[in-house]
Simulated scan of single mutants.
Amino acid sequence: MTVPTIDERDELLLSCRYGELEEVQQFVEKYGKEIVSDIKDENGNTVLHMVSGNGHLEVLNYLLTIVSPSIIGVLNNSRSSPLHWAALNSHLAVAKTLVEFPGGPGVDLIDIKNDAGRTPLGEAEMAGWDEGARWFVEVMKLDEKADPEDELRLADSVEDIEVEIEDANGEIARMSISRHEGP
């Protein structure tokens, strides 16, 4: 098997960016599927970043048959995953394919924060993509609630409660709630 040149690797990334399935398939026929998972641009973007950011579901489905499932969770130099790129550009079918791919990271992808401190859900919210944000919330792992009876007993024994809330931008708001007895 011959080794692709830097220009040929760049051409593969461009083919993924523009959704050129035949060109991607020709690259794989010529150089083999093993090398595809390792190809990145100068910013650390993989073939999956390129297809995910541009919504090329057909190319994504093809690539997922030949690359290692671990590439789904690869972060670029800004610590963004292909799912971040799909969310930023409002590509629901791509986002679902990445999250639901057997053997991949699954819903854990939704919790990854990039250098801007945003998860894919945060990126969807920043982009104003309500449909995607709703879907992420529907499928993501939410902390399991404790038994309500335990929470009531705990609340009776606590004088002050400290609350931290994280917004879509990753900012933390802190609040103290005091238990007030009497009128």
Rank of each mutant, 00 (worst) to 15 (best):
M140Q: 12
L13S: 05
E100K: 14
G103P: 05
I39C: 04
S78C: 10
N45P: 00
I110V: 09
S80A: 14
D10V: 03
M140L: 06
S90T: 07
H91N: 03
G55E: 04
P102M: 11
L21I: 15
L88Q: 13
T5E: 12
M140G: 04
L64Y: 03
K30T: 15
H91Y: 03
S80P: 00
V47G: 00
V99E: 01
S81Y: 04
V99Y: 02
E29I: 07
G128L: 05
D10A: 11
D38R: 06
I39E: 05
R17N: 13
V47L: 01
G44C: 07
V24Q: 01
D108G: 11
Y18V: 10
A124I: 08
F136K: 00
H49N: 08
A168E: 11
R134E: 12
V74S: 08
I71L: 12
E100N: 15
A133C: 11
G55P: 01
P4E: 12
K141Q: 14
R179G: 07
V74C: 07
L57K: 15
F27E: 01
P69C: 09
H84P: 00
L109Q: 01
L14T: 14
S15G: 14
E20C: 06
S68R: 13
E42G: 06
V67S: 00
P82R: 09
E125C: 11
A127G: 12
E166I: 14
K30Q: 15
D143W: 04
T97N: 04
R79G: 00
V59K: 06
P82S: 09
T119Q: 02
V99K: 01
I177T: 02
P4N: 10
E166M: 15
L121Q: 06
D156S: 13
T119A: 01
P4L: 05
V74L: 09
A146I: 10
L63V: 06
D38L: 12
R179F: 05
Q26S: 10
K33L: 04
